[in-house]
Amino acid sequence: MDKTIAKEAILKAKLETGETWDSLGKAINMSPVWLASACLGMNSMPEDKAQAICEILGLNSELVPILSACPHKTWDKAVPTDPLIYRLYEIVGVYGETLKSVIHEKFGDGIMSAIDFSMDVEKEENPKGDRVVITMNGKFLPYKSW
Rank of each mutant, 00 (worst) to 15 (best):
S37W: 04
S44Y: 02
L40Q: 11
C39L: 15
I56E: 06
M45V: 04
T74V: 11
T74I: 15
P65L: 08
Q51I: 06
Q51P: 01
N60M: 05
S37A: 15
G58A: 03
A38F: 11
E62H: 15
P46F: 08
L63M: 13
W75S: 12
W75T: 14
P46G: 05
A69Q: 12
P32Y: 09
V33D: 12
A52L: 01
V33W: 12
Q51D: 07
A38D: 09
A50C: 03
K49T: 06
L59H: 07
N60T: 11
C70V: 13
D48L: 01
G58S: 13
K49D: 04
P71F: 11
C54Q: 04
S37D: 15
L35N: 01
S61A: 13
D48E: 08
L59M: 04
I66W: 11
Q51R: 12
M42F: 15
A50E: 06
H72D: 14
S31D: 14
C39N: 15
C39V: 03
L67T: 04
S61C: 02
S68P: 06
E47S: 10
S68T: 02
A52M: 00
L63N: 10
N60P: 05
K49L: 02
A38K: 01
E55Y: 05
S44H: 10
W75C: 12
A50L: 10
M45Y: 03
A52N: 00
H72A: 13
Q51F: 12
C39T: 07
K73E: 08
L59F: 07
V64E: 06
E47Q: 00
Q51G: 01
A69W: 07
A69G: 13
A50M: 02
A69I: 02
T74A: 11
I53G: 06
V64A: 07
E47G: 00
S37L: 12
I56Q: 04
L35Y: 04
A52S: 01
I56N: 07
I66M: 12
K73I: 09
A69L: 09
C54W: 02
I53A: 10
I53Y: 10
I66D: 11
S61L: 12
W34S: 08
G58C: 14
P46C: 03
C70G: 10
K49A: 09
L57D: 01
N43S: 13
I56Y: 06
L35M: 10
V64Q: 05
M45N: 02
A50N: 06
C54V: 10
G58E: 11
C70F: 14
S61I: 07
P32W: 07
L59W: 01
I66R: 09
L35C: 09
M45R: 02
C70A: 11
P71Y: 11
I53F: 00
E62Y: 09
S61R: 13
E62P: 02
T74M: 09
A38N: 00
